[in-house]
Amino acid sequence: MEINKIQDGDSLTIALTGRLDTTTAPRLEAELKSSISGVAELIFDFEKLEYISSAGLRVILSAQKVMNRQGNMVIRNVDENVMDVFEVTGFVDILTIE
């Protein structure tokens, strides 16, 4: 998985490429912990994310909990396969997906 970050003031965009799974989720989690402080808007760009596992969902949910306290979080450009996972797990009801 590739992680691209774009910081614009208090807005942070994280674009993911590849698979967010048990192997790669810890990398994203570490990246978020080091980057999310002081961020008012967190945007995930999932245009090139092919797959998300339960480990990836846990990291996204954790980020959502932090952002509920300090700003807002949006997920954009979600692939059909990833959207299916969000729908089956009920994440569509707790995440802002555009």
Rank of each mutant, 00 (worst) to 15 (best):
Lys65Val: 02
Ser37His: 00
Leu61Cys: 03
Ser53Gln: 15
Tyr51Glu: 12
Ile60Cys: 05
Leu32Pro: 12
Val59Ile: 10
Leu32Met: 10
Ile36Val: 13
Lys48Gln: 12
Glu47Met: 05
Lys33Gly: 09
Ser37Ile: 00
Ala63Thr: 03
Asp45Met: 10
Leu28Gln: 09
Gln64Tyr: 14
Glu50Thr: 05
Glu47Val: 01
Glu47Asp: 09
Leu42Phe: 04
Val66Glu: 11
Ile52Pro: 01
Ile43Leu: 09
Leu42Gln: 02
Glu31Phe: 07
Ser34Gln: 12
Pro26Ser: 12
Arg27Gln: 12
Leu32Ser: 09
Glu41Tyr: 07
Gln64Arg: 15
Gly56Tyr: 14
Leu49Glu: 02
Glu29Ile: 09
Leu57Gly: 09
Ser37Thr: 03
Gln64Ile: 05
Ser54Leu: 00
Gly56Arg: 05
Phe44Arg: 01
Leu57Gln: 08
Leu28Val: 13
Ile43Met: 08
Ser37Ala: 01
Ile60His: 05
Phe46Arg: 01
Leu57Glu: 00
Val66Pro: 00
Ala55Pro: 15
Val59Thr: 12
Glu41His: 14
Ser34His: 09
Ala55Met: 15
Ile43Gln: 13
Ser62Ile: 03
Ile36Asn: 06
Ser62Glu: 07
Ser54Gly: 08
Ser35Met: 08
Ala40Ser: 15
Phe44His: 06
Ser62Met: 15
Lys48Phe: 01
Pro26Phe: 11
Leu49Cys: 07
Glu50Gly: 05
Pro26Arg: 14
Val59Cys: 14
Lys48Ala: 07
Asp45Glu: 00
Val66Lys: 12
Gln64Trp: 07
Ala30Asp: 06
Val59Met: 10
Ile36Ala: 10
Ser54Cys: 09
Ser54Phe: 10
Phe46Lys: 02
Gly56Leu: 12
Ala40Thr: 08
Glu31Ser: 15
Leu49Lys: 01
Ser34Cys: 03
Ala30Asn: 14
Ser54Asn: 00
Ala55Glu: 10
Gln64Glu: 14
Gly38Asp: 02
Lys65Thr: 00
Ile60Ser: 14
Gly38Ala: 03
Leu61Thr: 12
Ala40Asp: 10
Ser53Asn: 13
Ile52Ser: 03
Arg58Trp: 03
Ser35Arg: 06
Ser35His: 11
Phe46Tyr: 14
Lys65Trp: 01
Ile52Gln: 01
Lys65Arg: 00
Lys48Leu: 05
Gln64Asn: 10
Leu57Met: 07
Gly56Ile: 05
Glu31Met: 14
Lys65Ser: 02
Glu31Lys: 12
Glu41Ala: 03
Ser34Leu: 06
Val39Gly: 05
Glu41Trp: 09
Phe46Met: 11
Val66Asp: 09
Val59Phe: 10
Ile36Gly: 10
Ala55Ile: 07
Val39Tyr: 03
Asp45Val: 00
Asp45Gln: 01
Pro26Glu: 12
Asp45Gly: 03
Leu49Tyr: 04
Ala40Pro: 07
Gly56Trp: 13
Leu28Lys: 13
Ser37Asp: 00
